[in-house]
């Protein structure tokens, strides 16, 4: 019974826990769209009216890519496409710095053009 309770509590609060560790570092869009919990547009805020300091993320909806924050005393949902979130929501399981030395250097051939600048290991 205790185990079930622990699992349920973990499931209930995991999103909240996850959200606690994220902040909005920067508002990228102009204007920024305020949406409802389903992602539907409600209103817009001019970028100049958004906070300059980091804003704590209260809740994160990873399916719809929305975050709940408090702006001017109001709790609002924002779409992550308008925001720079820290730490980032999309990361690698193995950054190149941790790759074995023999594999880290780009073994690409010189005639290719790649997606990124390569590993800075």
């Amino acid at each position: 019974m205790n185990r079930i309770l622990i699992v349920l509590l973990a499931a209930l609060y995991s999103q909240g826990v996850l959200a606690e560790t994220h902040v909005i570092k920067e508002f990228l869009a102009d204007p920024v769209e305020v949406v409802d919990e389903q992602g539907k547009l409600q209103r817009e805020i001019a970028r100049k009216d958004t906070p300059k300091q980091p804003v704590q993320v209260l809740q994160l909806n990873t399916d719809l890519e929305l975050v709940l924050v408090e702006l001017a005393g109001q709790k609002v949902w924002l779409d992550t496409r308008d925001l720079r979130i820290e730490p980032p929501l999309n990361v690698m399981s193995l950054p190149c710095q941790q790759m074995p030395q023999s594999l880290a250097s780009d073994t690409h051939n010189k005639s290719t053009l790649g997606y990124g600048a390569g590993c800075s290991q």
């Binding site: 999309n90 950054p95 190149c96 990124g116 800075s120």
Partner: peptide, 18 residues
């Protein structure tokens, strides 16, 4: 097109701080 952000964030994480 928002998926381009996902891949660029991952790329940034992969390449590390320069």
């Amino acid at each position: 097109p928002r998926a381009a952000t996902h891949s660029l964030e991952r790329l940034n994480d992969f390449q590390g701080k320069q």
